[in-house]
Simulated assay, not measured.
Amino acid sequence: MKLAGALVLLGAALLLTSGGDCGICPAIKEDLELFLGPSVDAYVNFVKKYKDDNYTLENAESLKKCTDNKLTEQYKESVHSLLAKIEANSNC
């Protein structure tokens, strides 16, 4: 999954950017922060705010654990860095 997974996450974030200012939707930004962060429970609880059914929550937990096992800290930091550059870009 490594770099390809990080790029998929980034692509999803880019698709959901807001209209005029190129800022990333706050909910999507929080989702990515939690998804790339260390806590499975925090991510699952975030997902639960939007979709509270067992199937979705089990999938969210499984996806988070898989990501934690496959993506290195270096790849996660690369995604964070790229998101920061997108938000800082004045030419959007």
Score class of each variant (00 low, 15 high):
32 L>M: 09
28 I>W: 04
16 L>C: 02
5 G>K: 05
70 K>M: 13
46 F>E: 04
17 T>R: 15
87 E>W: 01
71 L>P: 01
74 Q>V: 07
48 K>H: 07
55 Y>A: 15
48 K>D: 03
29 K>V: 01
14 L>W: 07
18 S>C: 10
24 I>F: 05
25 C>D: 13
77 E>A: 14
50 Y>M: 07
74 Q>Y: 06
35 F>I: 00
74 Q>C: 01
89 N>I: 00
53 D>A: 06
78 S>P: 00
80 H>L: 09
77 E>G: 04
63 L>W: 07
90 S>Y: 08
89 N>W: 11
21 D>E: 11
10 L>S: 01
44 V>G: 01
2 K>D: 12
65 K>H: 02
17 T>I: 12
83 L>D: 00
89 N>L: 06
57 L>P: 07
72 T>P: 07
10 L>W: 00
85 K>Y: 05
91 N>K: 11
71 L>Y: 07
87 E>Q: 11
53 D>G: 06
89 N>C: 11
42 A>E: 12
27 A>Q: 10
25 C>R: 14
15 L>M: 10
69 N>C: 11
67 T>C: 09
42 A>V: 02
8 V>S: 14
65 K>T: 04
28 I>F: 05
56 T>F: 06
15 L>F: 09
24 I>L: 14
46 F>Q: 07
40 V>T: 11
2 K>M: 08
12 A>I: 09
68 D>V: 04
86 I>R: 03
20 G>I: 13
8 V>L: 14
40 V>F: 00
50 Y>W: 10
6 A>G: 15
23 G>S: 15
20 G>Q: 14
62 S>K: 15
63 L>R: 13
68 D>P: 01
16 L>M: 07
58 E>K: 12
18 S>F: 07
2 K>A: 11
92 C>L: 05
40 V>R: 09
16 L>P: 00
61 E>Q: 14
48 K>M: 06
68 D>G: 13
84 A>F: 01
17 T>Q: 15
58 E>C: 08
82 L>E: 04
57 L>V: 08
29 K>F: 06
49 K>M: 09
23 G>I: 10
19 G>Q: 13
60 A>H: 03
11 G>N: 10
